[in-house]
Design a protein around this nucleic acid. Structure first.
Lengths: 191, 191, 191, 191
DNA sequence: CATGAATGAGATTTCATTCAT
DNA sequence: CATGAATGAAATCTCATTCAT
């Protein structure tokens, strides 16, 4: 007899696991505490997830697809503005699953399924940034520069959303950095 | 009676702990396994480190100071070359304690002492990059641009050394990105 | 909706239980695995057999009656041949329920109903062997010798069918032993 | 601080395990009950025996060697008496480890180490009986008859000590059967 | 009738920590 | 100083059984 049956018991368990794993880490979170927070009996956790790592795998599968339609953020000819809009959108989507993202970063080391999911995601973000840059730059632009800028930006984004989130007082935006990158790209091929 | 007494038993314990924590995480590493790998009896671990977290704290104190003398890497007027030399040096120093860095990053969430050490280290790297940039740029340069570039570079460096280290096939160097940043800074204030 | 409804679901459950109990023992076999092998939902096992031990009792009731018509195996005057035929028949019948026999023997210790069934069966076999011996021996024969021989033969038979079945390379027949016993009985009363 | 330190804690644990396994079987005996009966904390059982099956293996290694000096039981020329003395000695030795023997028989199915130990033991008993028979028979004797008789007797002995032990009212001795076998052998080659 | 989600007691196992020697 | 037996709290996982549908 489920107590708060709005959400299915399975869903409540996953939610509780996500929170607790993010708070204390995978290993430091007993399944009993997950059950407690989810408001279900201890046995039910293992009924749905035979082994504890299965919880992690299920969480990976809940990772939202943060793909963004390139044409919706590109402002033709204005790299800086295009990047702002892209980063805004990415931030929003990444924030929506911030807890999840962070916990996965922590567990990537020891859980291959998690590691793979994260690498796929990073590559997707790099590709997306590159796409927007190319679409926004008016004339032609050095492909190597675009790659460099995209890699730097993706690193900074990922870094902030996974590692540097502890630094609560840091401003979320990256306006300064985006302007800098946009300017560098607009300046055309460096000699 | 220590078996391989070249290193002190205490040192061997710390070395074993560093390896094992990095491999499997702090929580997933039993002190008994640390003793085993260090080749010391189980009791000795707790003799030197009363509580398990004491091992982590001792490891933090082993963090080498990767400060680099600015004047040794700066090539006046050549930002790109200066950054290359700086990143080379940083990479070398960070790599020397790569395992340690990574493990600390993993445990930052739950061990405040570790978190603080990491933030101090990140800030130190940003400052150092900024110093080198300022010293290398010939004329004046927008302070905001230097800050942006330094932040982006420090992010990418930290990201690689803590998180992205799994990606074995990625080239360690960042030549392309460094050239790009150097060019952007050399181009002078963006409009 | 039974999937392979040739056999009734109840029958398939008993068959699966017999196999699994024999493979791993009663305690080490979860009812869920019985359901799985039988191809029925988990709930159905407990629907037909309220408690797990009920499965064992139902299996005991399936023990075939291996009684053999004495007159069909006795070759008057030829003890050896008579015993051969008897043992052949018994082997066939016991083999038909070999799995069941073995599992019951394993569980006899802890399930009184099973123990009783096995003792009844052993006594029946002794009696049957005795009957055949008496019918086959031409003249008179020491009753004590018949008893001894019957007991020895029943022991060897039971031993093989319950315990020693692991020894796959042992020949099933006991020709040598039967000839020996027949000769001993034929030799008349020992002094 | 051991409570009854006459016997070592490890020894008390093995003793308790032997008793309980024999009473209820391996699977039905929780390690917690073993600890309880041994008068040690639960953790100590797993300190000495990492996995539960390790307890069984340790018990197998405690199996006494019931070898008997042939020359001590043989009464030259008197097969019956020789067999009596042998069986008496074997009974005594087997009885000394009766509980252990029986429990091992039960678990042979699922624990290969146990199975092997038991087969070795059975073969040893057959060989010993054969030796005594050959030494006691005055003239020459058919080798096949000796083999048959030895196999029958070993079966009956093993059967009684492992399986048929439930039958408390059965007399332990086998005087009748031994006399019968001795007579059969003494009668010389059967035709 | 049949089902499978739900339950909770309890089993095995792990492990940091203590402490007598 | 150093050791490893001892301890017990707690973790993961299993499973017979119940019951609403």
């Amino acid at each position: 007899m489920p107590e708060q049956s709005e959400e299915s018991a399975r869903e409540r368990i996953l939610g509780a696991a996500e929170e607790l794993f993010a708070e204390a880490g995978f290993d430091a979170t007993p399944t009993s505490r997950i059950a407690e927070r989810a408001g279900v009996p201890k046995g039910l956790v293992h009924y749905y997830f035979k082994r504890k790592p299965d919880l992690l795998e299920a969480l990976v599968e809940r990772l939202p697809d943060e793909r963004i339609a390139t044409e919706q953020v590109v402002v033709a000819g204005d790299i800086a503005e295009s990047l702002h809009r892209l980063v805004d959108d990415l931030d929003r989507k990444l924030d929506a699953s911030a807890v999840l993202s962070h916990l996965l970063w922590r567990e990537a080391d020891t859980h291959p399924a998690v590691l793979e999911a994260l690498q796929v995601r990073f590559d997707r973000i790099v590709a997306q940034i590159r796409e927007v840059m190319v679409a926004a730059v008016p004339g032609c632009v050095e492909r190597a520069d675009v790659d460099s800028a995209a890699f730097l930006l993706a690193s900074a984004l990922s870094y902030r959303h996974s590692v540097a989130r502890h630094d609560d007082d840091a401003p979320l935006g990256m306006r300064r950095e985006l302007d800098f990158l946009a300017g560098a790209l607009a300046a055309g091929p460096m000699v």
